[in-house]
Design a protein around this nucleic acid. Structure first.
Lengths: 147, 147
DNA sequence: GACATTTGAATAGCCCGCTATGCAATAATA
DNA sequence: TATTATTGCATAGCGGGCTATTCAAATGTC
């Protein structure tokens, strides 16, 4: 009984995530990007040529989800996938020029969206919010429910 | 530059939302429920016979998403949809016996998941977390970006 | 060296969110 | 009252998440 949805962390976090995603989507659409590509791009901008497996681990996302996202990214001319020379199983992911050029505007858009969505929070509240989420993630995916 | 993803609220909130959803999914699968039905069920358990439109407004979700979710729910024997007598456009949504019986175990599962996911937070941190998210939602969807 | 195991990626199929669009019923208006 | 506008819902199509399964390459083991 008495499950007040506006007091349920799970309910709220889903709502907030949707708001963030929608905002980001609007902002990066002009760049020809969609939100799902963002995490992969962030990693690749820092470390071009990562393996699909490495992306999966770094982003804590399931392998088929990553494979699917990368397929879309390749289709859209953001990356190319090449087999590793020394191991025929692994796919290495390389950014295209276009993707490299998008770094500045895309990061700017994401930062703007973050700022905007949290505009109603005071500075210390923002830091708190981020810190709390990191704590949850750490506890959860760190020693998480390995099946 | 220097967009640290572990400091980006948008990035983190997406991650946390995924963790919550996966946890809930595992917990309610035995009941034959999926996470997407939860918000609608919560409303209907309190107010059976709501309109699709009313659900859309209360849950801040797009109309086609709701229509789709309700179609799945009807398929799975959770609700039935009946045209309103006095207005042939509106669909009223009525719970089945099965859905009513699921209230207790489903709510228990959600509460357990919430508790579990936030187990690493102190009590006051949990309250803070919830309060911050409500603040964000209020500022955002309240006077939000009406196109 | 042959066979079994492990590992990385791809595919199939589903849930659930979105936008854009179409359609039928009602309400408003000339 | 005939036409137009509005309103509520459904459909099409896609992005992005998941699980389960398959496949090929590499590794281990006998």
């Amino acid at each position: 009984m008495d499950f007040a949805k506006d007091q349920s962390a799970g309910y709220l976090v889903n709502h907030v995530a949707r708001l963030f995603e929608q905002g980001l989507k609007r902002r990066i659409r002009p760049l020809g990007l969609s939100p799902g590509t963002f995490p992969a791009l962030l990693e690749l901008w820092e470390h071009d040529g990562l393996t699909q497996k490495e992306l999966v681990i770094r982003l804590d996302i399931e392998q088929p989800t990553m494979a699917n996202t990368l397929a879309r990214m390749e289709r859209d001319g953001l990356v190319i996938r090449k087999k590793d020379d020394s191991d025929g199983r692994v796919q290495r992911i390389w950014l295209t020029d276009r993707a490299r050029e998008l770094q500045r505007p895309a990061v700017a858009a994401a930062m703007a969206e973050n700022a905007d969505a949290m505009a109603s929070l005071a500075d210390h509240e923002r830091e708190l919010f981020v810190a709390l989420m990191r704590k949850i993630i750490k506890a959860r995916s760190g020693s998480g429910s390995r099946r």
